[in-house]
Design a protein around this nucleic acid. Sequence first.
DNA 1: GCATCATAGTCAAGGAATTGAGTAGTCATA
DNA 2: TATGACTACTCAATTCCTTGACTATGATGC
Lengths: 185, 185
Amino acid sequence: MALRHAVLAALLDGEFSGYQLAKSFDIGVANFWHALPQQLYAELARLEDEGLVSGREVVQEGRPNKRVFTVTEEGFAELERFAAAPAKPSFIRDDLLVKVQAVDGVAAAPVIAQLRERAAVAEAKAEVLGKLLRRLRGELDEDEFLREGRRIGPYLTCQRGLAFERETREWCLRTAELLAWREGD
Amino acid sequence: MALRHAVLAALLDGEFSGYQLAKSFDIGVANFWHALPQQLYAELARLEDEGLVSGREVVQEGRPNKRVFTVTEEGFAELERFAAAPAKPSFIRDDLLVKVQAVDGVAAAPVIAQLRERAAVAEAKAEVLGKLLRRLRGELDEDEFLREGRRIGPYLTCQRGLAFERETREWCLRTAELLAWREGD
DNA sequence: GCATCATAGTCAAGGAATTGAGTAGTCATA
DNA sequence: TATGACTACTCAATTCCTTGACTATGATGC
């Protein structure tokens, strides 16, 4: 159960509601953890139950009220424990790679189309991440920020995400070209 | 339910038993899909039930017998359908990145240690993948093989895996150095 | 004055994955 | 001769994740 730790880590940047997390998970934390809204709500409820986060009602005008959460002392302690514990090996799951693995045995055309689409998605995501990086470091240049910034965690993970998306794009395009060439020839 | 497709894709390269798959998943298919032995056995049983693979007993000397599986016609058809269906977005889950995200709020030392360990693991995996690539292309050079080979799927996915591991290594090392420097200063 | 979208969240069912233990034969080594 | 390591596979419990539908308010467009 490590979604909880991803949530705690995301909440280090301030108060967020389940809804906000569900939105922002897609660009920030989603570089390394993905979750649907229902999961986030459920996890936040559990975390609050266990006293690792505390929620408060925010009354809003012009839209429904929301509950925002912050990490408690116990929450920090839990993160601390988690960070010091041995990490389980990461894993990727990608339908598209399964399809490429099987491409010699199935029709290539739909796989090529999906590779190109994925390349476009990766490019868009890379751009978003690039902007996020510029926003995070503000006026400073990268080296300066990384030496002196007081909140570099998200920056570092975004760097990783950006590199990943760029490479996904390159590989998808290369692979799509190759398969298309083999089809046409 | 897409483990089944990863299994089918893996079985395109020949007959394998659950045990063999469980081993080789770690180097080949595990670049994009990870599964424990129990899951593989269960999935193979289900696939056989549904007629997508067919198993046969192989009597062995000096070790327990095993059941190896091959993809049936229906299995191919299922793969075909899968390859043509829209791919769900891939996702990554990585404890270590969660830890880095949270690194401003927790002790950095254990995170640094884990980054270095991960870098070493990634390097080892990159080497294995490099060897696998050389083995797959045999005498040919890469371009030639990709133009003319008749089984390039695994090669392409290994390329992606190799790039991923290399980048994991670079990022882990850079990040570990940075965090260590910030600690020491 | 109605439809639609965005915010904000909830509920329940079912499938998939992880955890942990267990069986059983073979082989090397100490 | 017994200890551990490897092959080969199984079972059960639990936890986790996904799918899909549902409620409700306010804002915006037509």
